[in-house]
Design a protein around this nucleic acid. Structure first.
Lengths: 249, 249
DNA sequence: CGTCCTCTTGAGGGCCATCAACGACTGTGG
DNA sequence: CCACAGTCGTTGATGGCCCTCAAGAGGACG
């Protein structure tokens, strides 16, 4: 929570960080240059200046076309930590919670994936987390072997799969930042805004998960979550029609 | 920080979660089965029961062989958020800090990669974070185009690259768990243990980074980090010879 | 209508951020 | 050589946030 005004000044790169040793093979036929042109600040061909919105349509279409529809009852387990990661899910309906539980029984919910999001794309051997249905969940599930076979030959699919996992990583890092630097009500508001953004809906938005789920997501106790809701309501930042229906203001 | 004793009982999967709709193409010539055998709990061939330690030797060797040696001065910038991700680094010497800074100037350090770790493997277009040298850092840097060309044709490399990013994701999730559920001294101890584990050294271990860096990593103020050090020392969990040299007990 | 669960609100206390001061060290310039 | 400023690490005092314990309201369900 330090503000980095002074700091150790990450400036003064002067002539450090330059290539000092051209290394044996000059890579790609750039005879005179110790360092190929890609080292310079040139953006890659496909990257427009305007932030290019990543699409996962190839990946999603593939799973939708080849996957099997499965249903999960509220609070049932979709995939369990340590078990073989034999499948990938694409959510069609409902909300999932992805979490881990430590040896003391403390639970951390990393995400609440919903319609149009993948669950299980990040593992190939065994699950490193657990996923449970929050409400009634419908998914398309695809055997991992099928996905892997296609990944081996389909470049576009590979790019999208990588991009998806990268996005997960960036998401987690954003959460780390939030957890260490913002206070309860702000964390709740951020969560609600993010959640609302995943719904195209206007008007009141329904929260499928319990206060405890929210608490274990944003790192508070259920009581503090409740107080944070009351605080946001009192200060006019949200409208809370019922405990489950809210609107951002 | 709830303990999940009662909870909504993630049991009772009974006959939910079964495939309800065989979906058009039965995939791989399993005529009668609506669901190929990989759906069952069979581990994949390569996965031994004993936790298989992932090796990144193909990836590392490739970078070592084709990369360029670069040096970075303490506190110089290795890669900057938003700039083109044209390169991948393998650290040979020194310690790096990978971080992001939010709009209020709050900094979150995600990791302190060191010898034998990669920096920048997670992005392909632009950096989603910043990396700075903590002390004098020597790296092998490889143009991304070279890596991508090889990834396109080298399956082993692809697997290792994916595994590396997966490991980063799991690491971040572990950090999230730690940040929300453990207190200052415990967080510091976890960090020190992790840091010590990355050194094969016996005896006292030197900390290259400042208290502020540690603070921004484990989500405390510098003063609290200092108090946590004192606390661990007082309760006999660490031996602190100088502010930079410690030993786990 | 009682039981159970969730959500909410209050009271008390602990952890930690903040402000402040101090010693140790370093590099600078007189 | 020494005064001086600047940085870093440490410790103390104070206050705020939030966890814990506790109690109560409201709804779901048998």
């Amino acid at each position: 929570m330090t503000s980095l005004n002074a700091g150790r000044g990450a400036e003064g790169n002067s002539d450090w960080g330059k290539t000092l040793e051209p290394s044996p093979p000059p890579v790609q036929g750039n005879p005179g240059l110790p360092c190929p042109p890609d080292f310079a600040g040139r953006p890659r061909a496909k990257a427009a200046l305007a932030e290019e919105k990543q699409s996962y349509e190839t990946l999603f279409s593939f799973i939708r076309a080849r996957g099997y529809t499965q249903h999960f009852q509220p609070d049932s387990t979709i995939l369990l930590h340590e078990e073989p990661a034999n499948v990938v899910y694409l959510i069609e309906t409902g909300t999932v919670r992805s979490c881990t539980i430590d040896s003391f029984g403390h639970r951390q919910i990393f995400a609440f994936p919903r319609k149009g999001e993948l669950v299980g794309i990040s593992d190939t051997d065994r699950w490193h987390f657990t996923a449970e249905a929050v409400d009634h969940v419908v998914v398309k599930s695809l055997p991992r072997t099928v996905l892997e076979q296609e990944l081996a030959v389909n470049t576009a699919l590979r790019q999208e799969s990588r991009a998806y996992i990268r996005a997960l990583l960036a998401q987690r890092e954003k959460q780390l930042l939030m957890l260490s630097h913002s206070k309860g009500p702000q964390r709740l508001l951020d969560f609600l805004v993010t959640f609302a953004a995943s719904r195209p809906s206007t008007g009141y938005i329904a929260l499928p998960m319990s206060r405890r789920d929210i608490a274990d997501h944003i790192g508070l106790s259920t009581e503090s979550v409740s107080r944070a809701f009351s605080h946001l309501k009192r200060t006019g930042r949200i409208d809370l029609k019922t405990p489950e229906k809210f609107k951002i203001i």
